[in-house]
Amino acid sequence: MTLEGVAPNDQCGPERAGSCPPLPDGWPMRSFLGRLKDRVRADMLQIGTRRHFSPEEILIQEGDRSQYVVLLHSGFAKVTAQLENGREALLAIRAGGDIVGEMAALDDAPRSATVTACGEISASIVEYEDLQLFLHRHSDAAITLTGMVVEKLRWANRRRVEYGGLPVKARLARVLSELALSHGHQVRRSLVIGVALSQPELAALTGSSEVTVHKALRELRQERLLTTGYRRITVLDLPGLRRTAGLPDRPFRHPQKPY
């Protein structure tokens, strides 16, 4: 299996997901569904074909010329892309409330990434024509969608710049603190990251080797910042992890209901 003009919503961007309270339905305010007005969200939920995806099932395939989008209702998905050297890069993690595949629907270009289910997923498949009709009916939703695409690109660019000057341990701490805030659930005084990640996937997220990630994880465990199990990471000290990542402290607020 496998983490990307919007004011005031840009306060709930990918890097600030944990600071955004959930909607009653459990979708984070940072997500596409979370940013829509109630009546627009209700309309969006009426279109498309409901689907259930099993773990490791592909929602979108890199290189395809399809233009449908997938609206995630619950569960997690990973976004990956093939590198020139044949390796796979883990680009992002998406959760319930998010929309994936929107770039191909907007620019009619081949899919730039593969989206794969990380566990059970409930979603809607929205065909290109239905999406266009919806966006014509709701111009504010079109602005929101475009803004989210721009935001993801800015976030990706900022991550590349930041990571170029950070050691692997700090990169890993940054990835894990972001995941804890966006997808963590509280167990006593700890945060269990709600997405199972392997060491190769953590290496892909941090742009490092698996051996280096293994060493960094060991150091973070020794510093009692986290514990690890089989595809499970529990953050014991979020402020300490964020200090290691070079990030300011931020209190945890549950971003969404567990699925």
Rank of each mutant, 00 (worst) to 15 (best):
E223L: 15
L176M: 02
P258R: 11
G26C: 10
T80Q: 04
G165A: 15
N85K: 07
E162C: 07
A245R: 00
W155I: 01
A123V: 09
Q132S: 05
T49H: 06
P21L: 15
L71I: 10
Y68M: 09
L191R: 05
R87L: 11
A81M: 02
I121P: 04
E129K: 05
H73N: 04
M44I: 06
T244M: 15
A196M: 01
V79S: 03
H136N: 13
L172V: 03
L197R: 02
P255L: 01
K78A: 12
C118G: 04
F32R: 00
Q46R: 14
E210W: 09
G229L: 13
A81I: 01
P55V: 13
S177V: 02
G101D: 00
K37E: 14
L45W: 04
W27K: 05
A170C: 07
I143S: 11
Q82F: 02
I99H: 04
Y259M: 06
T227K: 08
H73D: 07
P248Y: 13
P248D: 11
G18Y: 01
G246I: 06
V195M: 04
L191F: 08
I99G: 05
A245C: 02
P239M: 11
R243I: 03
Y163F: 15
R137C: 14
S19N: 08
R232H: 09
V70L: 10
R221Y: 14
R111K: 00
L71C: 10
P55T: 13
A89R: 11
L220F: 14
R231A: 10
L135G: 10
A95E: 07
P24Y: 12
D249Q: 13
T228H: 09
Y68A: 11
L145S: 02
Q46L: 10
R35N: 06
A92Y: 00
I93Y: 11
